[in-house]
Design a protein around this nucleic acid. Structure first.
Length: 927
RNA sequence: GCCUAGGUGGUGGAACUGGUAGACACGCAGGACUUAAAAUCCUGUUCCUGUUAAAGGAGUGCGGGUUCGAUUCCCGCCCUAGGUACCA
């Protein structure tokens, strides 16, 4: 029988499903291992060959770990709330749940074709009420929590209230809004219900606050910072503007330092760690207040270079700064207003693009230098950002290039503050010298000056050491339909949680998926949708990242009706051991997930500080487009003649995308091309060597470029095992690479070769029980070792090569020994599960058990080299084969060298200076 | 600009802690089997010199360095990809 991938793969996929071969139990004597894929958003386009790359890698790893005796949790589900389904619903009126369901079914079918070992009984969908019940529940816990800086963790609001009742606000160190009040216990008790709730809202981790948000009018919703790329929306590329709105936010900034510290404890790719670090953006410095006596106020600035404070020659405010109005003098009013007007018209994009032009305006007012008390001019300029720090900076032209350029442009003083500074051409930020022109720190070094300054400012109550973060709190509401409803209703304008037993708060039906006429979100259309028929529910829904910020817990216990997951399940599975997914989630999903994980730990639901111990970013698989070259006539119009790539420079041509599925090894199938488009039916070709060669280019995979390759097509032609092996063979997992079907034949040939090892020339199954030869054992043990090493370091491509070598060796040896072949297919099972299952049962084993067979034990004895001759270099250059035994000491070797005629020829009569041994072998002789 | 990763034949890539660079595969060329095709198998394939061969030389982006020996380590530069940006 020939290798028939279609029947084999269908047979075993059905077997695994029928017998629940990969169902995972939570209790087990085996050690646990949790392998997770980033679950997909089920889009309408289905999967292309790029999508399963990471899934195949994680499946190989899971299967390998099972062979190694681990109880493996390897689940899959769908992140099924999201914008595209809703956009589609707006266009067609079809309920997003229906399109989502259809897309999921298609995804499932495509995934099933690849033969993954997922435990599908644990499937989850974030848009199902049984799931979002617990997303809402976590929201309630966040609403009911505040961050205690003293204990450095989140605690319940109830504990905070108790503190307020007994001691007032005294002794509370919290990560909270800036405008929290100070009060005694008695005052707290005198507060009205409304006042108390308003005050508590300033502490909650999920809170409602008027804040500047990214508003995307085209999508009709606000977006989080990570959903805005270069001033346009990540989804759809629509313009985004800044707008003040009442919005739900998550106090992720409370966790900034722990999120940063945690990065050092996890095994993640360096670029990704770096991205999170930059996103959090910790800067250590000081906050300094510049008094403004005329307003009885002060300007607070943040600086990382407190030591340069005597170089301050002016202060700059962002144009949006709240004190600008009050500071502007009558003389300067026209100028300042004109400047504000000009900058407010600039879009975010313009402002980013234009970093060269120096612009600003003098307010006419002066602040006092906190230490010298001298007058310092106050300017406004748009190089100072309202959203970072305090929206104001102390300008030190001698130390900061932007300040330097600004001072030069407006003729402001530039004061050198260090004896090593060269400020003739540009600012010089070095901190190597001793200070000059710097009052009481003159002559000090940087290390001496900073503490002295902090102490002085603290005594003046005009400054203190401070750590600043770039990260902002995350906006948590979306004015959209297809998301989790927020389990909150409003009473007297203040938010209250519904009761836990009223969860889940179901997404109501609406007639249209558009905002209401009065501009409320789509949920405003829901009829009779009121809490206790009286109170208005929150009309925003949760953002896309809500459901994905805790989903790995739900897989541990997906059917639980009373908890998000039982404590037994959480205690057993703990955290994800291996997480595979794309790097595009670096500052979104992966940060929010770490945040929610830490929060759930703080309030006592588990003990793991980090959710994903090891993370691998699979590289994106890009498309590889093929082109034909259409010849142009004299007027530059396209003719129906096409010229092959090698001859295209002899004609005026225009390249046209051609469907990659009618091109094989860059050779165009002329007949298929003629039926590709009706107007090509009579196409003529100029060939080279009788072939039409297509041009190529690497682009994103998309329908319009005709470069989408569907895994189903590959599978029907070559099989799922070939697809799996080939995706790995394509190159290192983490590297981005274009999909190219050209090399797939080689992998397919390999599988047929494996099949033939078990069959005789007539195709009958024939395996011998004879004792294998040394050479056969050697071939086997090489692969046992190699696969183990490769999988442990995620180098899947190199083991595919090793398998090919092994199959070639065994073919050459005409090996059909059971002892060899049985172990070989166990090693191969993670990569090619279908063919190995088939051969496993042909060998007489119980079907379905290969996945849990013990991985063969490597025996190094089979790999011991027996040859006496091996290559040696002289002075690292010339090579010869030395007839030497191993385990000789230097003297013995030298004696042999001197006596051996062949060797002397190489040595050219010169004495041996040194012999270099590596692992008991001579590698090099120095003469 | 800054941060991170990378640069190896016609192509994808291998070489794990410095030790025979180009494994393995594709492609290409030639051959065997076959009436033929498919399938399978064999041989060659970094470049240059050399009629073949023997043999020699060069060679891992470029220029230096360390070393008996460098794709690997160090310094400087060029290029590509990803991220990020008036972050005070």
């Amino acid at each position: 029988m020939e290798y028939n991938h279609l029947s084999i793969e269908q047979k075993w996929q059905k077997f695994w499903a029928d017998h629940q071969t990969f169902k995972t139990e939570t209790a087990s004597d085996k050690p646990k291992y949790y392998v997770l894929d980033m679950f997909p958003y089920p889009s309408g386009a289905g999967l292309h060959v790029g999508h399963p790359l990471g899934y195949i890698a994680s499946d190989i790893f899971s299967r390998y770990k099972r062979l190694k005796g681990f109880n493996v949790l390897h689940p899959m589900g769908y992140d099924s709330f999201g914008l595209p389904a809703e956009q589609y619903a707006i266009q067609t009126g079809q309920h997003p749940a229906i399109t989502t369901e259809a897309n999921i079914n298609r995804y499932r079918e495509q995934m099933d074709n690849i033969g993954f070992s997922y435990d599908w009984s644990r499937e989850i969908r974030t848009s199902e009420p049984e799931y979002y019940h617990w997303t809402q529940w976590i929201f309630m816990k966040l609403f009911d929590a505040w961050y205690n800086k003293t204990s450095d963790k989140a605690e319940t609001i109830q504990a905070l209230i108790q503190h307020f009742e007994s001691q007032g606000s005294a002794g509370i160190q919290a990560e909270a809004d800036d405008d929290i009040r100070e009060f005694t216990a008695a005052e707290w008790k005198d507060f009205s219900e409304k006042e108390q709730q308003e005050e508590l809202l300033k502490y909650r981790l999920a809170y409602l606050r008027e804040s500047t948000v990214n508003w995307c009018a085209a999508l009709g919703t606000v977006l989080a910072n990570d959903e805005v790329i270069n001033g346009v929306s990540e989804r759809g590329g629509f313009p985004v503007e800044q707008k003040k709105m009442m919005q739900w936010s998550m106090r992720i900034t409370a966790y900034a330092d722990r999120l940063l510290r945690g990065l050092e404890t996890i095994d993640w790719p360096e670029p990704l760690v770096e991205m999170q670090r930059n996103w959090i953006g910790k800067s250590v410095g000081a906050s300094v207040k510049f008094p403004v006596p005329q307003l009885n106020s002060e300007i607070e600035v943040f600086t990382t270079r407190l030591d340069t404070i005597f170089g301050v020659s002016f202060v700059v405010l962002a144009p949006e700064h709240e004190l600008v109005d009050a500071l502007t003098t009558a003389d300067q009013k026209a100028q300042v207003e004109a400047y504000i007007d000009k900058t407010s018209k600039k879009s975010e994009l313009d402002r980013m693009a234009d970093t060269k032009t120096v612009s600003g305006a003098f307010t006419g007012s002066y602040a006092k230098h906190p230490i010298t008390g001298e007058d310092v001019q106050i300017w406004i300029a748009d190089y100072v950002l309202a959203s970072y720090g305090t929206g104001a900076v102390m300008a030190v032209p001698s130390g900061d290039q932007r300040d330097y350029v600004f001072a030069k442009h407006f003729g402001l003083p530039i004061i050198a503050i260090s004896d090593t500074q060269d400020i003739s051409e540009a600012a010089d930020p070095n901190k190597d010298g001793k200070y000059i022109n710097s009052d009481f720190i003159n002559g000090m070094t940087y290390q001496e000056a900073v503490p002295a300054l902090v102490e002085r400012l603290e005594s003046l109550k005009l400054g203190k050491a401070k750590v600043n973060f770039r990260m902002r709190d995350a906006i948590f509401g979306r004015q959209r339909y297809w998301g989790e409803p927020v389990p909150v209703y409003f009473k007297e304008g203040l938010p209250y949680l519904i009761k836990e037993e009223e969860l889940p708060l179901l997404l109501p039906e609406v007639d249209k998926y558009l905002p209401t006429e009065s501009g409320e979100p789509p949920l405003g259309r829901a009829e009779d949708w009121k809490y206790q028929d009286e109170y208005e529910y929150e009309l925003s829904t949760m953002p896309g990242w809500a459901g994905s910020s805790w989903y790995w817990f739900r897989y541990m216990d997906p059917k639980n009706k009373t908890q998000f997951a039982s404590s037994e399940a959480v205690d057993y599975w703990k955290a994800v051991d291996l997480y595979i997914g794309g790097s595009e989630h670096a500052t979104g999903h992966l940060l929010y997930s770490r945040f929610w994980n830490k929060f759930l730990k703080d309030i006592g639901y588990h003990n793991e500080e980090e959710p994903f111990k090891k993370l691998i970013n699979q590289g994106m698989i890009q498309g590889r487009s093929n082109f034909v070259y259409r010849i142009l006539d004299a007027e530059g119009r396209g003719t129906n003649k096409f010229v092959s790539l090698g001859l295209k420079n002899e004609y005026p041509t225009i390249p046209l995308h051609v469907d990659v599925n009618i091109v094989h090894n860059d050779v165009l199938d002329l007949e298929k091309f003629k039926s590709f488009r009706p107007d090509f039916a009579n196409a003529e070709f100029i060939l080279e060597n009788g072939k039409y060669i297509c041009g190529t280019e690497v682009e994103k995979m998309s329908k319009s470029k005709f470069n989408v390759v569907n895994p189903d097509d590959i599978i029907s032609q070559y099989g799922a095992d070939t697809l799996r092996l080939y995706e790995m063979f394509l190159g290192p997992l983490e590297q981005a690479k274009p999909w190219n079907t050209n090399g797939i034949e080689g992998v397919y040939k390999f599988l047929r070769k494996v099949w033939r090892l078990f069959h005789d020339a007539e195709g009958n199954f024939l395996v011998s029980d004879d004792e294998p030869s040394k050479a056969e054992y050697k071939a086997l043990h090489k692969i046992i070792k190699k696969v183990e090493e490769d999988i442990e370091r995620f180098s899947f491509n190199t083991s595919v090569s090793a398998f090919m070598i092994c199959a070639n060796e065994l073919t050459d040896l005409k090996c059909n020994k059971r002892k060899i072949l049985q172990d070989l297919i166990i090693c191969l099972e993670p990569y090619a599960p279908h063919i190995t299952e088939e051969l496993w049962s042909l060998l007489g084993n119980e079907p379905g058990t290969i996945s849990y067979a013990p991985y063969p034990v490597f025996n190094p004895e089979y790999l011991v080299e027996s040859e006496f001759a091996y290559p040696v270099s002289i002075n690292g250059k010339m090579r010869m084969n030395l007839p030497l035994a191993l385990d000789l000491d230097q003297k013995a070797v030298e004696a042999i060298l001197m006596e051996n005629q062949d060797v002397q020829k190489y040595l050219d009569g010169k004495p041996v200076k040194k012999i270099i041994f590596v692992k008991g072998k001579i590698i090099n002789i120095v003469i």
